[in-house]
Design a protein around this nucleic acid. Sequence first.
DNA 1: AGCATTCATCGTTAAATAACGATATAATCT
DNA 2: AGATTATATCGTTATTTAACGATGAATGCT
Lengths: 95, 95
Amino acid sequence: MQDEDLAVMMRALGHPVRLSILKIVAKSQQSCCCADVTQCLPLAQSTVSQHIKVLLEAGLIERRSEGTKNCYVVVAPKMQKLESAFGSLTRGLIS
Amino acid sequence: MQDEDLAVMMRALGHPVRLSILKIVAKSQQSCCCADVTQCLPLAQSTVSQHIKVLLEAGLIERRSEGTKNCYVVVAPKMQKLESAFGSLTRGLIS
DNA sequence: AGCATTCATCGTTAAATAACGATATAATCT
DNA sequence: AGATTATATCGTTATTTAACGATGAATGCT
């Protein structure tokens, strides 16, 4: 994986609100929409939507529209790739 | 590990220049100072020093003064803690 | 068709970040 | 003591980010 792509994902994870959003999305077994996330956080809907966009653009979550809602899921393969890239980074750094 | 701390480290890793700096510091077996890093990058010394500060504050590298130079090393235990925190994060997200 | 719901996007503002050159500090050397 | 070296910090500028309220577009309901 390219350093730039890795950096984009790291940056996406580099904000506590986005970590929270990821956890909320992951935890809710059935479809999790923007309103669901917003309800869990002390932030405006538009702010949450913006954070979601960052996660989307990093490829860490995916949108799928469901009626009038937009639901989000964590992209497991991407997370795994990230973890492995991160692993080889750290291995390279500390060996 | 607290979400905020995790986010600080992720953010520190969320810039390609800082990834480069970490790699440069890790690769150079003997003491690696700011000038050494700067020589490897198309950036001003002050800019490199600023990036180094971000890595220092995240606890990912450590300074140790050596004569008139300041040398840097990757803090292996911190990297390992980060990797394990990251691992449990992703495990929580994709399970 | 008209209304309600959901949510992305727009426009704005304040704060943080990235980059630079210039300067100041601290250690070494002559 | 004075000169040199290495580098952190300062001051600045431009860009990006975070947060908000308001608006608009798409979908579903009556």
